[in-house]
Amino acid sequence: MSDELRTILLEQVDRLLADNAGPDLLRANERGIWPERLWAEAEALGLPLALAPEAMGGAGLGWDDAVALWQVLGRHAAPLPLGESMVAAALLAEAGIAPPSGLIGLAVGSAPVAWGRRAGHLAVLQGREVALRAGPAGQEGRAGYARDPADAAGPGAALATGALPADAGLLAGALLNAARIAGALEAVLDMTVEYANTRKQFGRAIGGFQAVQQLLARCAGEVASAGVAAATAGRAAARRGLAGAEFEIASAKVVCGEAAGTGAEIVHQVHAAIGFTDEHALHLFTRRMWEWRDGFGAERVWARRIGAAALARGGDVLWADLTGRDER
């Protein structure tokens, strides 16, 4: 997708979320109220199928476009299961199955399915097989930190099956969560800078205190790192497919996961008690950052994977491997 088109799409999505989403909608999500209107608007823009090729009714967006879009979702704490549905459609398409319209629940292994109870269809990934099933999933419960509806796929008959490269679901999910974390981090940093410039103690804005400035500068480093790591992973997947981008996706999940931890720590410290309340919106973001860093493989899982691979390859080629990835 051209830079210009991408910018237009991202602005559209950002405006859509700015106009229709917000803390109330996030809280409604957590009470199990389906974001009917927002989903309809997203469908009207063709977003759920956007990653599928045009021949299958999609827009043929690449993984790099997807990352940019998911980052926007993350900036609004993603109050709908759009990212998951996009991944499900992309993976079905990759396996040669035309993705149906409407919400497709993404079921990777035994992980819970975001909003499975509302899904018209399910994409169930086990090993290298992907099965398209009729939805909805059984109503199970809510995700740990985020409290958004998360359900169990359960058993069911396949409408179609296909094969995918190993770990495709895990990789795509990790890419999604890394991008959402990068976006959410931008949002909480902005919120916190704004707060630091308005909250006064000792007769001055707390943002004037050097201790606060140093914390937020460190946070900015993590926010920038997360954004670059996610974008790098998206670019690699667009170039080499998910399997060929394992190093970059794993790196993004590690860096974004670490940044989520450090970032949340800092923004809560600066907000202090008001940020610890249910009423304040900060936790609507930070709880989702904690959720997303655990989902589709925590930092530990991905770090071990690329670390073990590097150890097996040895010190002589470490640098050549790192620099050679985009130079073939």
């Binding site: 790098t232 670390g307 150890l311 790192l322």
Partner: peptide
């Protein structure tokens, strides 16, 4: 790196270091 093959805890640490190196690059 070659020495660290003998250290079971190394894979995770090396992975984190590489993830950051690639990103900083």
């Amino acid at each position: 790196l070659d020495d660290l093959r003998a250290e079971p805890a190394a894979a995770e640490t090396v992975g984190r270091l590489l993830a950051r190196a690639g990103t900083l690059r």
